[in-house]
Design a protein around this nucleic acid. Structure first.
Lengths: 130, 130
DNA sequence: GTAAACCCTGGAGCTGGCTTTACGTCAAGC
DNA sequence: GCTTGACGTAAAGCCAGCTCCAGGGTTTAC
């Protein structure tokens, strides 16, 4: 799979894919004899994982740490798990905060509905009284 | 209320408060004769609102639009509501995505637990067989 | 065999959102 | 009356995370 196919498949720009690889978020991708990237299934898996984690707000740096540990093998299992646990907690906190903001927006929108109706009634009254 | 009190109260830096005001996210705050900001209750309300919305991911620009509409009065009620509805949908989508990433992290963490246990057993076995 | 369409790299540039800097004013305590 | 420290402004700087560009090598289609 070449880079533009992967780009389309995951909705990440070609530049971003190269950037992620350069930054070590994705292991170095195999190249064809002429030097073109050829993404394996596994590479795609990493791309998808990174995309998902980035969208959830994990930093480039954190993800780089994770993959670095990953490639050190089994003896980093505990560290990797700890990293994930920490990020999971952060994510949970972000979600909770956003949930309550969502509720707040819902409430505000409801209020607006009420006010808009009231405003329209007011207009109607004025028109009738003419 | 002066700027440093508001800063402490809401956990936004003094610089950020000035920045928000300059960018029009917060209405211009009343000044003392000598030009120092003196935040009213209402100002504080805006600060709190903006802080909350920023944390939920609404852009500076969107919030500026909202407050601009707000100060045009009642005839922008519908527009303001629409803006909030759009942002609400975006927020909901972000939350949903993050929820599923959270679930994914939970799953991964569980897997790690299993693997760590397996790894420890392996070590134990090796030690016994010596 | 040549133009069009990809791909490569390294490095510069951009964007959003603050943060720092440089420099000046003012109020309070000593 | 002088220092100290909080406040003011404008403008430059900074950081994360891309995004674009120049310059050059392939591959593909005609």
């Amino acid at each position: 799979m070449n880079i533009s196919e992967v780009s389309k498949k995951y909705g990440l720009s070609i530049d971003t894919l190269r950037y992620y690889e350069k930054e070590g978020l994705i292991p170095p991708v195999r190249r064809s004899e002429s030097g073109l990237r050829d993404y394996s299934e596994q590479d795609c898996g990493w791309v998808e994982f990174i995309k998902c984690m980035r969208a959830a707000g994990l930093s480039i740096d954190t993800l780089r740490q994770y993959i670095t540990l990953y490639f050190k093998g089994n003896r980093t299992l505990q560290k990797r798990k700890n990293l994930l646990v920490v990020e999971r907690e952060k994510l949970k906190a972000r979600i909770d905060e956003m949930q309550s903001t969502l509720a707040r927006l819902d409430y505000k929108i409801e209020m607006y509905e009420g006010r808009i109706v009231a405003c329209e009634k007011e207009l109607l009254k004025k028109r009738k009284s003419k």
